[in-house]
């Protein structure tokens, strides 16, 4: 028996919009810890890890660990039928091949049940090692989205370099090149507008902009994005989800052939 009630149902809608273009099918795992997902894109270049902690739900009942194979596009279609202010409850049962999404209006005067078919998905769960990153950049998520969009109109790849001067985003394409430097900036009233750079050592890595631009669909979930870089590792682009958890995107670098 599974029953997860989320007052701020819009969070779940936003999560689906953020990942459905990157990953088409995935297993949602439900345990005492929370509602989670780990999945790679079809080319195995990017990985998304989502966690919505059980404490963040208004009501969280998960009698035993349950994995639900879901077509994310279909789930997104159903969640789009929920109003922006609706409370969403996810209901499931062992041994059934469906999950139900219940939408309640805030005034409780409209209640909708959408039942969706589950599917069997063979997915490998990867171990993500704890890592010390050479550089961690925290910046406004909208600014990062703007940079990725702008550079994506010029080139296909972005070189992200962190030095003590700041974080540099560089691309080159047929029409020319572009270079954007963001300096550390903490002298603002709103901490979410700050750019903070923690650097242990300089690092420079190249990534496909197509994936970065896909990750920025999570911008509506958080005002701040955290980008963690190490030369031996995929970059981590993390959006915190209110008090509930996170969505983390891992992207394998382009490396010299």
């Amino acid at each position: 028996m599974l029953e997860l009630r989320l007052i701020q149902g819009s969070l779940l809608k936003k999560v689906l919009e953020a990942i459905k273009d990157l990953v088409t099918e995935a297993n949602f795992d439900c345990s005492a810890t929370g509602f989670s997902l780990q999945a790679m894109d079809s080319s195995h270049v990017a990985l998304v890890a989502l966690l919505l902690r059980s404490e963040g739900f208004d009501h969280y009942r998960c009698d035993r660990n349950l994995s639900m194979g879901i077509n994310l596009n279909n789930m997104s279609k159903m969640l789009r039928c929920a109003g922006p202010e609706d409370i969403i409850t996810i209901k499931g049962d062992d041994g059934t091949d469906t999950v139900t999404f219940m939408f309640e209006s805030q005034k409780q005067d409209k209640i909708s049940d959408f039942e969706m078919k589950l599917m069997d998905i063979d997915s490998e769960h990867l171990g993500i090692p704890d890592a010390e990153y050479q550089a961690i950049v925290r910046m406004p998520s909208a600014e990062f989205a703007r940079i990725c969009k702008d550079l994506g109109s010029i080139g296909d790849t972005v070189v992200i370099s962190v030095t003590k001067e700041g974080v540099k985003f560089f691309t080159r394409g047929d029409v020319g090149s572009a270079n954007i430097v963001c300096r550390q900036n903490t002298s603002v009233d709103k901490p979410e507008d700050s750019t903070v750079i923690e650097m242990n050592e300089p690092v420079s890595l190249t990534f496909a902009l197509r994936y970065m631009n896909s990750f920025t669909k999570a911008t509506t979930l958080s005002e701040v994005v955290t980008i963690s870089l190490s030369s031996e590792l995929p970059v981590v682009v993390e959006y915190k989800i209110a008090e509930m958890g996170y969505i983390r995107f891992y992207l394998a670098p382009k490396i010299e052939d």
């Binding site: 790679m40 080319s43 195995h44 270049v45 990017a46 990985l47 490998e124 769960h125 990867l126 171990g127 993500i128 090692p129 790849t157 190249t206 496909a208 031996e232 590792l233 995929p234 891992y250 394998a252 670098p253 382009k254 490396i255 010299e256 052939d257």
Partner: peptide, 14 residues
């Protein structure tokens, strides 16, 4: 020329 690496090169099944 830069070649795209894969996530599975860095993270493996436990």
């Amino acid at each position: 020329v830069n070649k795209q690496s894969q996530i599975t090169t860095f993270f493996t099944s436990p």
